[in-house]
Every structure is written in C-alpha cells, then in structure tokens.
Design a protein around this nucleic acid. Structure first.
Lengths: 190, 190
DNA sequence: GCACATGCCTAATGCCTTTAGGCAAGTGTG
DNA sequence: CACACTTGCCTAAAGGCATTAGGCATGTGC
C-alpha cells in the first residue's frame, strides 16, 4: 500500500502533537496517527513502544517547547516583569496549543520526569523569585504557589470556567499577576 | 444469568464512584461497572445513556459531595478560619477520593454545569470573601484566584509533583493558605 | 547482482462501546 | 385466577482501538 513513507519517531511525535491540538490530547490514538500518514496501524509499532510511549513523547515535546519559550521570555527581565512574562508564556501556550498543553500535564514516571524539561521549569520559577526577597523554605512554598496558580488558572480557563461571565478572563489574569507580585514582595512570616 | 439484580441509576453511579477511587476516573468503564454487578454490559444501557452519561453522573455526585462538605466546614466560620477550612475540604476530599475528585473536573456541558452543585461552590467562595474587604470586580478576580490555587495545588500534588522533596506538602499548603489570607487582606489596587 | 536489513503489511486476539431484538419475571386487570 | 403488559437482563452483532507475530518487498552495502 504505502511503501517507504519515511516514518520516524520525530515525525510521528510532531504529527501527534498537532493532532492533539486539533482533536484534544485524550483523543490522540495510535490509530488516528496511522491514518494521518495513510499507513496501517501496526506499522507504527516499530517506531513506538505503545500508546503510552506516544503520549509520553508528546508530553516531552510540549515541556521542551514551553521551557524554550519561557527561557526566551525571561531573558533580560526581572521582578514583576519576569513574573508577568513567565505567566503569559504559560497561558498563551495553552491557548495556542491546548492539546500540547494538556500533554505537558500527562503524568510521567519519575525517571522520565527527572530527565525532562520539567526541571528547567522549576529552575526558571526559582530564577524569577530571585527578584523577590524569599529565603528557604518560603521560596519553595512560593514556587509551589506559582505553579498551582498558573496551572490552575489555565486549566480552569480552558475548561470554560471563566467564559461567559464578566469581567473577562484577560482582566482577571492581569490582576492576579499583580496580586501575586504584591504577595511575593510582601510574603507573610508568622 | 442474573435475574433481577435491581440495578438503578443511583446504585450504578455510587458503584462507579467507588470504582473511580479504586482504579482512577479514566479507568471507569461501562464494562468494568457491569463486572462489579456480575451482569452483562448491555444491561447497563437501559439505565445509562452511554459512557459519557456515566462519567457525568459521577462528576455530579462528586460536586454534590464536595459542596456538602464545604458547606458544613464553612458553617460558623469567617475570615481566615473559613478560608482554611474551605481549602482543606478540597484537599482532603481529593486525597480521600482521588477518582471522584478527578470526576469533579470532568468537563460538563454548560446546561448540566449550570444545574450542578458547581454553582454552590462559586457561591461559597464568594461567601468566604465577605470576610475580606473586596468590591467588584476585585472580588471576582479573587474568586478565580482561589479556585485556581486550590485546584492547581491539589492537581499538582495528586500528580506527584511535590512528593519527594522538602519541605513536605502539608507545610507548603499551610503557608500558602496563610499567604492567600494575607493577600486578600491586602489586595493591591493600582 | 546478491544478501541482508529495514519498513510497512496482513492476520489475529482481546477489550471496550453501542444498538437491536428476545425471553422471562413481576404487575395490574377483569 | 389467568390474561396481557411492562420491565429488566440477556444474546448477538458490528465497529473501534491496542498490541503481537510473522511475511514480503524495497533499498543498501559488498
């Protein structure tokens, strides 16, 4: 049927990421991917271990892209400027690439996670906090708070949580970033 | 085979919720549910429209339970006390019932969502904010922030994000609630 | 030009979803 | 009490995805 189409893990992963953005990460399936290449399903199994492997690869790709964008946004910025830039990278990426973003939340096994771009994310979050005056363990608490807010907000927004109500989501997002900046400048110490 | 087992939508939903807590919400399947009742799969289709219907029912159950717990926790409390109690209800519920919690995040279609206990959650969040001095639209921004933090934190924690690192998650959680309280008492107005 | 490796294919199994149609256990009526 | 009727679970069947085993042909290296 389709002789020598030239499948590679990289091409498959990229196509799967695009597919995820189009139909949703959950809907990404080895069968659907085979269809994209006009190839029989079994043919993919010499490139991919299984379905989970495919999803893991999309996740790693997304984490990588997200980290690259964040790194670029952070370059030359500090303090609130850096905070806002970082926050916007997350939200914008999720809006542009919902499937990839969902993939980035795919649960990886510990070793894979440790070798992923996920660690760069943590490092960058800590880098932002250098602009504020937080010693350990408060810095870690703050890292976790920022991660929670960004992920939580984006996730609720994607789920349509803030859609049909005033004020619009962009407004809330800006004010929340303002609030986080104020909080970090004034972190409570009981 | 199994004559008159006495299936009802309610029994099915409850069993499905328990199944979700045991094997994960994603793993809840009409087939697995039929197995629990020692009944053929097709038999469930006179009680359930389809798989999505089943998941929606679990979600509604979870939202209901969560709202009930929150309402009870909130009774007689105000200010930071109320904030902490509310926050803990979410986290504790997610830890006790991971499958149900995941179900509560299942995307509902707008009408279903509007008729769900989800609206009580929003109302309660606003009730908490009565203990702080926030006028609109800041109150809405704050509602969204709280929702994001709670959901985001719990979700990252369940994903194992904070597992093998110091300080432990409980500590961060407490300090984050402290921080949110401080922030709400001192909401920035630019 | 030959031998080999590689890449995609066919075939088959198992599990899940969903619909159609059947049979028998309870229910209500004369 | 017997009748018809409804209801609840069943069998059967079709279609989809995941995964494995084994085959054939197309390119590569000698």
């Amino acid at each position: 049927m389709a002789a020598r189409v030239g499948l590679t893990v990289e091409r498959l992963t990229r196509a799967a990421a695009e597919l995820a953005d189009e139909v949703g990460f959950e809907q990404v399936t080895v069968s659907a991917l085979a269809r994209q290449f006009d190839v029989k399903v079994a043919s993919l199994y010499s490139h991919l271990k299984n379905s989970q492997d495919l999803k893991t690869r999309i996740a790693l790709l997304a984490l990588e892209e997200l980290a690259d964008r964040a790194a670029e946004a952070l370059a030359g910025r500090a303090g609130k400027d850096a905070l806002a830039a970082f926050a916007n990278v997350y939200r914008d990426y999720a809006r542009e690439h919902p499937g990839r973003y969902a993939a980035a939340r795919f649960r990886l096994d510990p070793e894979t996670a440790a070798a992923s771009a996920g660690v760069r994310h943590a490092q960058m979050t800590r880098a932002i906090l250098r602009g504020y005056d937080l010693a350990e363990p408060d810095q870690t608490h703050a890292v976790r708070l920022l991660g929670s807010v960004f992920h939580g907000y984006v996730s609720l927004e994607m789920g349509g949580g803030f859609s049909h109500s005033a004020p619009d989501s962009q407004e809330s997002w800006s004010r929340i970033v303002d609030a986080l900046d104020a909080l970090l400048r004034n972190w409570p110490t009981p």
